[in-house]
Design a protein around this nucleic acid. Structure first.
Length: 163
DNA sequence: GCCAACGTTGGC
DNA sequence: GCCAACGTTGGC
């Protein structure tokens, strides 16, 4: 089982939007970066757990938890002329862009902000925190996952309670 | 294959 | 709104 972080601008698609979606799930379409695609295609498996991060937000940070409910399959928006994510160079016989389905499982008791991630010795190594990092899909270690939940629950010492 | 130009991301 | 960082494109 692996852990991941996915980014979204709440003005485009927020955790609330996902929470309100049918089945609290959605297809994670629109990823147009090869490294992020490879993480989705080659790394993500059903049951993997995911942090949902708001970028370009106030506050910016991790707001909720999701799980992968469907593994990578072609993103149909790449074939739709006029769609913002249309890719004229992608062919149906060999789709360039993939997406997974995610389902929201928990809303965190509070937002764990980017500032907190940066100031936490155990979280400042997270890929999303690195200077210049623009990847919208990044792996998270189990230690980072555990620490983030512990912070979200109020920062008490001790093992994270089961969310 | 190099690299300048360009577009995008995203924190601030 | 600014701009640093990064990825992609395309001329050569």
């Amino acid at each position: 089982m692996r852990y991941w972080l996915i980014k979204s601008e709440p003005g485009e698609f927020s955790f609330d939007d996902l929470w309100a979606a049918k089945g609290r799930r959605t297809a994670w379409d629109g990823v147009r970066n090869y490294q992020a695609r490879n993480f989705m295609r080659d790394g993500m498996r059903v049951g993997d757990l995911v942090l949902f991060y708001h970028s370009n937000a106030d506050p910016t940070g991790v707001v909720g938890l999701c799980e992968i409910v469907r593994e990578a399959y072609p993103d149909p928006t790449q074939f739709e002329p006029g769609h913002p994510h249309f890719d004229p160079a992608s062919e149906r016989s060999s789709p360039r862009w993939m997406m997974v389905d995610v389902r929201a499982t928990e809303r965190l008791p509070r937002v764990v902000t980017l500032a907190e991630l940066k100031s936490s010795p155990r979280l400042k190594s997270m890929q999303v925190v690195q200077r210049g990092s623009r990847l919208s899909v990044t792996p998270v270690t189990q230690a980072q996952w555990n620490e983030l939940l512990r912070l979200a629950e109020g920062g008490q010492k001790g093992p994270a309670k089961r969310l």
